[in-house]
């Protein structure tokens, strides 16, 4: 399975006087291949997250197409696109992304619960073991540290065995040890056949990259 962006552009209209059109991502072609870990780096505001959001089906490009197995994902209606995201994509968002009324286990299984599907609890437990949060299964997010919440979000993104895994600054607020663990985990996912895209500032990520890109002028360039 591949995920390909064809000539995608994203313009934002900014409030204020004068020229108010801002191009975050400019006429970009980009491909994520299975079994490959791609790292996208760049300074803040360079359009990294915008590109990730367009690729993950969360942000419709101003122009261009995003193809999953040859189908333009933005030609789908919201219901179908949402289902596709649920089944094929896993996203580790920036910041703290917990649903506070649910336990760690319930948070991780939420992608199944949304579509009332039988949850793969066994795999969820394996992921929790792997990410060292197994003992926190029944704990609410309010009792977790930032690093534990991040690992919970990673397990949740991976629990449906997605074909593409997107990680937006997955180590932003983690210490060195946790950072290494997260990158190791994402590398494993890639080795298991998942296409992985990491958007990060961390220079450590370069060591894990099969492909390294740097965002320059709204266009990802191979580094």
């Amino acid at each position: 399975m591949s995920l390909t962006a064809e000539n995608i552009t994203k313009d934002y209209i900014r409030a204020g006087k004068g020229t108010n059109r801002f191009t975050a991502v400019k006429e970009t072609d980009f491909t994520l291949e299975e079994g490959c870990l791609s790292v996208l780096m760049g300074r803040s505001g360079s359009g990294k997250t915008t590109l990730l959001n367009m690729l993950s089906g969360l942000l419709c490009p101003t122009s261009g197409r995003v193809l999953s197995d040859g189908d333009d994902i933005y030609s789908l209606d919201d219901k179908k696109l949402s289902k596709l995201r649920n089944e094929r994509f896993g996203v580790i968002p920036q910041g703290q992304s917990a649903v506070h009324s649910l336990t760690v286990m319930e948070n991780i299984l939420l992608p199944f619960a949304l579509y009332r599907e039988k949850p793969d609890e066994e795999y969820a437990k394996q992921l929790m073991e792997r990410l060292d949060i197994a003992q926190l299964s029944q704990v609410k997010p309010s009792e977790l540290s930032g690093g534990e919440i991040r690992r919970m979000a990673i397990a949740r993104a991976a629990v449906r065995k997605p074909r593409v895994l997107f990680a937006d600054e997955p180590t932003g607020d983690l210490d060195d040890e946790n950072t290494r663990e997260v990158f190791d985990f994402l590398k494993e996912q890639a080795k298991n056949g998942t296409a992985v895209l990491i958007v990060t500032h961390e220079n450590d990520a370069k060591a894990y990259a099969d492909k390294l890109y740097r965002m320059n002028g709204g266009v990802p360039e191979k580094a």
Binding site: R85, N86, P111, L114, R156
Partner: peptide, 13 residues
């Protein structure tokens, strides 16, 4: 944010 998280996980509008 919780609703945004669910959206990211594949919840439709």
């Amino acid at each position: 944010k919780e609703f945004a998280v669910m959206r990211v996980m594949g919840a439709s509008g």
